[in-house]
C-alpha cells in the first residue's frame, strides 16, 4: 500500500521532474539559461500564458474547450487601446470595459455550448473567427501604438517601491519581479482556491466526471457551463491586458495560435482532455515547461519554424500520454 501511495504521489508530481530535467538540460548547454535576467524574462513571457491557462483548465476539466481565447486577447488589446488612444478614455475604465467585454464573449460561448448544444470546439471556433474579424474591423488591420499601461497604473507599485527604497527598478517591476508575473501568481492562487477549496471547483470536477449524475445530484450544469466559459473569457481578457502592457502596442494579429499553446500547457500539466481530472499545480508546471522550452530554444538559436514543430510534438505527446493512460486503465 505504501509503495502504491509512493507511486501515485510520484505519478502526480512527475511533471515537475520533467520541468527540472528540462532546466538542467538547457543549463548544461547554455549556462546563461539560469541567469537572473533570463529567469525574470521567462517569468515575464509565461505570465500571459499562465493567466489564460487558468480559464482553459476550468473549461477542459468539464470536458470542453475554448478556442476563442486568442481572439479575445486580440480584441481586448484593440478595444482597450482604441478606447484609450482614440477616444481618450481613462485607462482603468478602458481596462474594465475590455474585460467585461471578454466576460460577455465567454458568456456567449457558454450559451452556445450549454443552451444551444453546439459542440464546444465548433462554438468557440466560430467565436474565434468572429471576434478576430471584429478586432480587424475596429483597428482597420493596423496596429495602435503608444499604449502605456505601466504608468500610472501597473507602475504604481513600482513607483511606490522606488520611492521607498530606490534600489528597485521601476517600469513595471517590483524589485526584480515583473508585475505581470505577480498578477499571474495571484491568478494561480485564485484558480487553485476555486478548484480546491470552493464548491464551484468540485462542481467542475463532477461535471467533467459524469455530467448526468451531476445534474441528478442537483448541480445546475448549464449555469455552471456559463460560469466556466465566462471565467475563461475573464482570464483571457486579463491575459490580453497583460500582453498590451508588455508590448505597448495593440495588434489585431496578436495571439494567433495562442489557444493551442495554452492547451499544450494545460494538457501537459496533466489535465485530461476527457474531463474531470487535473490539478492547478500541474498546470503551473506545464506553463513553466513551455515557457522554459521556448526560452531555451531561442537561446540555442533554434529557428522559429523548428520551435513550432517542437511545440506541436509536445502537444501531441501530452494528449497521447493522456489517451494512452486512459486506455491502459480501461484494459
Amino acid at each position: 500500500m505504501n509503495e502504491n501511495k509512493f507511486m501515485s504521489a510520484f505519478k502526480q508530481n512527475a511533471i515537475w521532474l520533467v520541468f527540472f530535467v528540462e532546466i538542467a538540460i538547457f543549463a548544461y548547454f547554455n549556462p546563461k539559461f539560469l541567469s537572473l535576467a533570463n529567469v525574470v524574462n521567462i517569468s515575464r513571457q509565461v505570465s500571459y500564458y499562465g493567466i489564460a491557462s487558468i480559464g482553459m483548465t476550468f473549461v477542459i476539466l468539464i470536458a470542453g474547450i475554448d478556442l476563442s481565447i486568442g481572439s479575445i486577447i486580440a480584441l481586448v488589446n484593440v478595444v482597450c487601446a482604441y478606447l484609450m488612444m482614440n477616444m481618450g478614455w481613462n485607462m482603468w475604465l478602458a481596462i474594465l470595459v475590455s474585460i467585461i467585454m471578454a466576460i460577455l464573449i465567454g458568456v456567449l460561448n457558454g450559451w452556445m455550448v450549454a443552451s444551444i448544444g453546439i459542440p464546444a470546439i465548433i462554438a468557440t471556433f466560430a467565436s474565434q473567427t468572429v471576434f478576430r474579424g471584429c478586432a480587424y474591423l475596429l483597428s482597420g488591420g493596423l496596429p495602435i501604438p503608444g499604449v502605456v499601461l505601466e504608468h500610472p497604473t501597473f507602475g504604481f507599485f513600482a513607483r511606490w517601491s522606488l520611492n521607498r527604497w530606490e534600489i528597485f527598478k521601476a517600469m513595471g517591476d517590483i524589485g526584480l519581479i515583473p508585475i505581470c508575473a505577480i498578477i499571474m501568481v495571484i491568478c494561480f492562487a485564485v484558480g487553485s482556491f476555486i478548484l480546491n477549496k470552493s464548491y464551484f471547483g468540485r462542481y467542475f470536477y463532477a461535471i467533467g466526471g459524469n455530467e448526468e449524475a451531476s445534474e441528478l445530484s442537483g448541480i445546475r450544469v448549464n449555469k455552471m457551463k456559463y460560469l466556466i466559459y465566462a471565467l475563461s473569457g475573464f482570464f483571457a481578457g486579463l491575459a490580453g491586458i497583460v500582453l498590451l502592457s508588455r508590448s505597448g502596442s495593440a495588434q489585431s494579429t496578436a495571439a494567433i495560435g495562442f489557444e493551442f499553446e495554452v492547451i499544450t500547457c494545460v494538457v501537459l500539466g496533466g489535465v485530461s482532455v476527457a474531463g474531470g481530472i487535473g490539478r492547478m499545480s500541474g498546470v503551473i508546471a506545464g506553463v513553466l515547461i513551455i515557457g522554459s522550452l521556448k526560452s531555451g530554444m531561442i537561446m540555442m538559436n533554434v529557428s522559429e519554424y523548428t520551435q513550432m514543430v517542437v511545440q506541436g510534438l509536445v502537444l501531441a505527446v501530452a494528449v497521447g500520454v493522456d489517451c494512452f493512460s486512459k486506455k491502459r486503465q480501461a484494459s
Binding site: 468540485r202 449524475a213 445530484s217 442537483g218 448541480i219
Partner: peptide, 26 residues
Amino acid sequence: EKKGRKNVDWWLWRCICLQLLYGRGS
C-alpha cells in the same frame, strides 16, 4: 446547501464527493 434548488439528490452528490476525495492527493 440551502440554495433554493429543486431536484437535489444530496446522497448522490456525496457519492460523487467521495469519489473526488479519492482522486485528491493526500
